[in-house]
Amino acid sequence: MTLSVRNIGKSFGGFRALDDVSLEMPADGLLGIIGPNGAGKSTLFSVMSGFMAADAGGVSLHGRPLDRLGAAARARAGMVRTFQVPREFHHLTVRENLMAAAPGQTGENLLGVFLSPRRVRTEEAAIRVEAEATMDFLRLAPVADTPAGRLSGGQKKLLELGRALMAKPRLILLDEPFAGVNPVLIGQIMDRVATLNARGIGFLVIEHDLEALSRLVPRLVVMDRGRVLATGAPDVVLADPAVREAYLGGAVA
């Protein structure tokens, strides 16, 4: 049961954003990705999640190749991503944002809306309960009926995570979950991610906050200029001179 990324290459014009990137992790594991700006981390997420086509290489989940699937189909296959800049449905309330993410709704078909109203109602009630539970879990309950566009940056990050959870993924790709989030909320998000991971959901996390990330994940991948520089336990990787050179600009001797 693994997520496997093999030899991904991606160029924009002459710029090699990703150069032969490979990584592997148990689908229910926790893996962090760090690297300086422009290292290709977010591009890697976009390629993995089907938002960008790879020039070379491939992605598979549980041995099933995902390369021919579009973004939506990859999410349905169990790998759901979040975005670095939150993309909430800003006119919908927090509750509606979460409910919209639930998979396989009869009421999302026009025929279902008009021909099976009772079934739609029953499903809605169940999804609503699930959304309430998710809001309680992420402490979003106080803003349940607030339009998502009015949330703070940190709350939007939590909502991104909540929506991803409502989609029933096996693995979540988190893109900078702590960026622009106040320290109290960071602790909260970390705590929730750890709890969810204990329940069997895998996480691949891009993050700049090294200190927070090192506490969260047992293993790190370091990227630089489109390549994987090092992989291993956080303290080992961060002690690597090449990593210090690339990531910290050699500033720390």
Binding site: F51, A75, R87, L92, P103, L110, V120, A167
Partner: peptide, 20 residues
């Protein structure tokens, strides 16, 4: 729910695709 999804499309299509 159909109405909820189409309003979600209006707000952010990519986010919807990311949710499957």
């Amino acid at each position: 729910p159909f109405g909820r999804v189409i309003e979600a499309i209006r707000d952010n299509e990519d986010a919807l695709r990311a949710l499957g």
